[in-house]
């Protein structure tokens, strides 16, 4: 056992196999155990001393610099820039592009006229389409499902998570319990969008397959039919229910996601599940008929995820 293992143990930088080895060692070596305690106390003391900085009101110069830096970083990584423009603006821009393209058709092939999209008359803020909302959902999924900052708030306290996101949206929202189809809630985040905040709940199977549920209140003039869209590898089913619009996103084939979407739809209709144990009888009939292999690369065992330690 090396000294560096002891530090990596204190700092949470060991994989679980190595962690168990270190713990076994610590059980027998009092001196090492004392050092671990001392190092942990040091960490705690440093946080006690300096965490107050995090609670200080942010200086406006940092907010300003941060915003400008964010814009510059966006510009430097254009493909990842997905919510810097609200959906309807992008839609309008692409419509303007097509219109200009048609008008410029006489220029002939191979000649790309510079298109004055930015100078096009500002379009009336048309209602965003549900498709645009679903597109945002797929982009948010691809960005956050593999991010270090996958969620803003963990699922340790689901009531707190739901309350917080409900406040951000101005509507009561909740994370449906998907334990019955093998998906465990990791947590959620709120994202800025045109017409208010959007909530993103993130779920995971035991095998690491991730699923996000995007909930927002776009004022779309469209009805609630289940629709499907795919952007790159990310598929999305989306639908509206009352004032809320939902988009489910993940790396799935259409049929796989359809099965999940039906389960989610059912769970949403039946309301927040009583916790901690959600009765299995609430599972949607569609789900029970679905072979588990369809849902995830590794067949989830319903309920088994509940005992797992929460992802931080």
């Amino acid at each position: 056992m090396r000294d560096s293992d002891l530090h990596a143990y204190v700092d949470g930088q060991l994989d679980s196999a190595r962690r168990i080895e270190v713990e076994t060692w610590l059980a027998e070596d009092e001196e090492a155990a004392r050092r671990v305690d001392a190092y942990r106390a040091q960490n705690a003391a440093l946080h006690s001393l300096f965490d107050s900085v995090l609670r200080e009101p942010a200086d406006s110069r940092f907010a300003d610099l941060g915003e400008r830096l964010g814009q510059r970083l966006d510009a430097a990584s254009a493909p990842r820039r997905w919510w810097s423009q609200p959906g309807w603006q992008r839609m309008a821009a692409s419509v303007a592009f097509v219109a200009a393209g048609l008008g410029a058709g006489w220029l002939g092939h191979g000649q790309m006229a510079p298109l004055p999209v930015a100078q096009a008359p500002a379009p009336a803020p048309a209602a965003p389409t549900l498709q645009a909302f679903a597109e945002e959902a797929t982009q948010a999924h691809s960005f956050y499902a593999n991010s270090r900052f996958e969620v803003e708030m963990g699922a340790d306290n689901q009531d707190a998570l739901n309350n917080w996101l409900s406040e951000r949206l101005g509507r009561a929202v909740f994370a449906p319990d998907l334990g019955g189809i093998g998906y465990r809630l990791i947590g959620g985040r709120s994202l800025p969008a045109e017409g208010g905040a959007v909530a993103q709940y993130m779920y995971e199977t035991g095998g690491g397959t991730r699923l996000t549920l995007f909930v927002g209140t776009p004022k779309a003039d469209q009805q609630a039919a289940f629709s499907f869209v795919k952007h790159g590898e990310i598929a999305s089913f989306y639908w509206a229910e009352g004032v809320l619009t939902y988009a489910l996103a993940g790396r799935f084939e259409r049929d796989q996601l359809m099965t999940i979407a039906q389960a989610v739809h059912q769970k949403l209709k039946s309301g927040p599940a009583p916790r901690p144990a959600a009765p299995q009888s609430q599972s949607a009939p569609e789900v029970k008929q679905a072979p588990a292999e369809q849902l995830a690369p590794q067949p989830p065992v319903p309920g088994s995820d509940q005992e797992r330690p929460k992802a931080s």
């Binding site: 001393l49 300096f50 900085v53 942010a58 940092f62 941060g66 964010g70 810097s84």
Partner: peptide, 22 residues
């Protein structure tokens, strides 16, 4: 809002704490 907005907010807070400790 920048795509980096939330992430940057977290990092700037972290930079400030580290700078203060330093």
């Amino acid at each position: 809002m920048s795509i980096f907005g939330i992430e940057l907010e977290v990092h700037i807070a972290s930079l400030r704490r580290y700078a203060r400790a330093l």
